[in-house]
Design a binder for these strands. Structure first.
Length: 550
RNA sequence: GCGCCCGUAGCUCAGCAGGAUAGAGCAGCGGACUUCUAAUCCGCAGGUCGCAGGUUCGAAUCCUGCCGGGCGCGCCA
């Protein structure tokens, strides 16, 4: 809200001076405290075009701004030509009134043209429990979905359920091997690249309980049954873990459907029409080099089975056909090449791939005592997301996965996460919220009831630097949501909430609320409400709880 | 070899549509609880922004090259 207002004022000033400048070229940033509330370098960027020294331009604009004067307490030209702005306390009071009025809706945008958005994330194969990478994926995807909702769009959360590839066959064979071992064939070998986790034995055990030795022969039919049971089991595990992460999907899209509904065949036919496929060595190749990709790829193996790339393309085409305005994929960094291939293929089929945003997040390393925890897929010795949640709780897990840029490798420091103390950054935010809740409880105990009207009255009493600094911080919330959404970076919101908490703790430390005299007390209560709302809403977007007490 | 991501304080990271003295958290040192939660606050200390060039009035930020780390480059998914 601050930047928007400043931008309006600057645009008006430029108009008065008859200098044509578009609003977007006026960039505002928050400078060091002593310079002001906002600063712009617009005079510096215009210097060349206007052939005037930047300071002279800045002075001119500043002059006009000073005469307009509304909402601005101070306009200064500094350094090489920055214009520093400081708002009046009255302006901040007005903001605070708006926040209190909006209450639970504070921070929500009303999109002029609401978009339909599909966010596909997690999409882990139903062959085992979720791991840390999936956890980061879940946290990022769900938060992006939340952000789009807060921007006023309509969001569908979707999970692509990859239950048709040959990894499923491997799952069945792995379970079968354990099943045989349980039946007494201790030496029955696990397949070369089989799944080795504990859960495989659990599944096998449940089969023994249900079927006894009836599946011993391992006929095709029996293996299919085992596969089905394994898939269901894994799916249940996955959903339980996602539940604990606070993630709910609207759509689970089964890969099966692409086959049963003929989508795979359709895509092949389309590629044929466009002359984008050819046969070689008994396989069907997609001519990706014709659409700017470095290599052609096999899409149907010589065995007649499609490679994973083909259903991927068919699936994305299906999503496009459903008519979303925006499609978002959340993938691990290892999907780079595939994602680009899928995009190029869809573009070749005539789809507007600018609507498809692929979010690639970097890998997660688990650190314990400063050293990476070794994970081995072969031995099945991996650290599951469930284990992590058991150990540190869902709030910490979600926050830790969101507190770094998506594009950065993430070091998950187990020792820090386990720390139930001030060192843990999650608690810092939650504590601010709980502290406010505590004051409200105290008010109840003492029988203090304050009407909204009284709060609104009291707001103009807020003149202390810590009070104004806190309002200033709160006022950024809608802009932060917008920035985090357009950059697809939850960390922007996470960092912001820390700043809010800091501003609050400073205020709290310096100024008593209930001990203050009316009407200042009422004004401070309004500030508490606004702060709590901001923290609660922000934490909700991140999927972290806002506790009433700690 | 090629492609993508990353290199900023002891550690983990912000800042990067160029701009005013490069910021946080943790760790270190020193202060603040008879008051609404000290899971807090205040202060001190800590940096050749990987290296070398280039563009510019101005580069952590843009360009090129190199060095270092991660991830890819399957008829696996």
């Amino acid at each position: 809200m601050l930047k928007k207002r400043a931008q309006e004022l600057l645009v008006a000033a430029f108009e008065a001076l008859q200098i044509p400048v578009s609003a977007e070229t006026i960039r505002l940033e928050i400078p060091r405290q002593e310079f002001g509330d906002l600063a712009t370098n617009v005079a510096l960027t215009l210097a060349k075009r206007l052939r005037k020294p930047p300071r002279a331009i800045a002075e001119q604009i500043a002059e006009v701004l000073r005469t307009m004067a509304e909402d601005l307490a101070q306009v200064e030209v500094a350094g090489p030509g920055f214009i520093n702005l400081r708002f009046t306390p009255q302006f901040y009071h007005q903001m605070l009134r708006q926040i209190v009025e909006q209450g639970a809706q504070w921070g929500r945008h009303q999109a002029e043209h609401p978009l339909s958005v599909n966010v596909e994330f997690v999409s882990a194969n139903p062959t085992g429990p979720l791991h840390l990478g999936h956890g980061r994926n879940a946290a990022i995807g769900d938060t992006l979905a939340n952000l789009y909702e807060w921007m006023g769009h309509k969001v569908v959360r979707e999970y692509y359920f990859n239950n048709a590839g040959n990894q499923m066959r491997m799952l069945a064979l792995s379970i079968y091997a354990r099943y045989r071992q349980l039946l007494g064939d201790a030496d029955y070998p696990l397949p070369e690249d089989g799944y080795r986790g504990e859960y495989i034995t659990d599944i096998a055990r449940s089969l023994v309980e249900q079927y006894g030795d009836q599946l011993r022969q391992g006929t095709e039919e029996q293996l299919q049954l085992i596969q089905k049971k394994g898939e269901e089991w894994c799916f249940r595990m996955i959903r339980q873990t996602l539940d604990r992460m606070g993630v709910q999907f609207d759509v689970y899209f089964n890969e099966d459907r692409l086959y049963t509904e003929g989508k795979i065949e359709e895509v092949i036919a389309l590629f044929r029409q466009k002359g984008l496929v050819y046969e070689k060595d008994g396989a069907l190749w997609l001519k990706l080099t014709a659409v700017g990709r470095p290599q052609d790829r096999v899409i149907v193996k010589s065995t007649g089975e499609p490679t994973y790339r083909l259903p991927d393309i068919a699936y994305h085409r299906e999503k496009f056909e459903r008519g979303y305005d925006v499609l978002i994929d959340v993938f691990g960094a290892d999907h780079i090449a595939t994602a680009e291939d899928v995009k190029a293929a869809l573009a070749a089929l005539g789809y507007d791939v600018s609507r498809l945003k692929v979010i690639l997040y970097q890998f997660v390393t688990l650190l314990e005592d400063g050293k990476p925890v070794k994970m081995s897929k072969r031995s099945g010795k991996t650290y599951t997301l469930d284990t992590l949640i058991d150990e540190v709780g869902a709030d910490v897990v979600r926050f830790f996965f969101l507190m770094r840029s998506v594009s950065k490798h993430l070091e998950f420091d187990l020792n820090l996460a386990r720390e139930q103390s001030e060192k843990n950054p999650v608690f810092y935010l939650q504590y601010a919220h709980a502290r406010i809740a505590s004051i409200f409880r105290k008010m109840d105990e003492r029988g203090i009831a304050i009407s909204e009207a009284a709060m609104m009255e009291g707001i103009e009493q807020l003149q202390q630097p810590e009070e104004l600094a806190l309002i200033k911080e709160l006022a950024r919330f809608p802009e932060i949501i917008e920035a985090a959404t357009s950059a697809a970076e939850p960390v922007i919101l996470a960092d912001y909430l820390r700043d809010v908490a800091t501003a609050f703790h400073r205020f709290y430390h310096q100024h008593p609320v209930l001990g203050a005299d009316s009407p200042l007390r009422e004004g401070r209560v309004a500030l508490l409400h606004a702060t709590q709302t901001t923290l609660r809403n922000g934490l909700a977007i991140l999927g972290v709880s806002a506790p009433e007490r700690m």
